[in-house]
């Protein structure tokens, strides 16, 4: 892909993967992210920010932020990945490049606790009002336990235990 060569010339590209003809994954460092996004927007035609998503890699102690961009003329997607430290999840906002990023970052802050410096509405409640625990989409948050403590349990105990065993087995299997 020509665009990958152009990106490699200009920025530090840690990993790259061509998933389909119209979908490319590019991994980069936190310092390179904003110049790369601006370059992709202004020079390569990726004018639309489709979404920002976050993945919790608890074993490696990292959060992965994925910025999904769309080029309307070429009809192509590019996903820019960046890894940040899980213990101090601080990152820079990109709402000056795309204003709609403000809401995505607000939601990621609520669900994962990632801190986007410079985001004006960060910390306002989006979905969870009066939340009193660690952010719920982190993988060390036990959602079943929280639900049973807060909302009471209704399903038979045995069934819940069976389900919990299955999910623990699945986690172990995935760690291998």
């Amino acid at each position: 892909m020509e665009i990958l060569e152009r990106l490699r010339e200009r920025f530090e590209v840690l990993e790259e993967k061509v998933q389909r003809d119209d979908l490319i994954f590019v991994g980069t460092t936190g310092k390179n992210l904003i110049p790369m996004l601006v370059y992709l927007k202004e020079y390569e035609g990726f004018k639309t920010l489709v979404m920002i998503s976050c993945v919790d890699w608890i074993e490696e102690g990292k959060f992965q932020l994925s910025y999904n961009l769309w080029a309307p003329k070429q009809k192509k997607n590019i996903i820019v990945k960046v890894f940040i430290d899980r213990k101090q999840p601080n990152f820079t906002t990109i709402y000056r490049i795309w204003p709609q990023a403000e809401v995505y970052e607000r939601e990621i802050h609520e669900m994962f606790g990632v801190n986007f410096e410079g985001n004006p509405t960060q910390g306002e409640e989006l979905i969870l009002e009066d939340w009193d625990d660690i952010p719920p989409m982190r993988r060390d948050f036990d959602t079943l336990k929280y639900s049973m403590e807060k909302f009471g349990e209704r399903a038979p105990k045995s069934r819940i235990n069976i389900r919990r065993e299955i999910s623990e087995q699945y986690d172990e299997w995935r760690r291998k």
């Binding site: 625990d133 719920p136 929280y146 639900s147 909302f151 209704r154």
Partner: peptide, 19 residues
């Protein structure tokens, strides 16, 4: 609303409405 349905382990959906 009866017993949480498929959201019985959700962090945000209530389990019993009649409470």
């Amino acid at each position: 609303p009866i017993n949480g349905g498929m959201y019985y382990d959700s962090y945000n959906a209530i389990n019993q409405l009649d409470l």
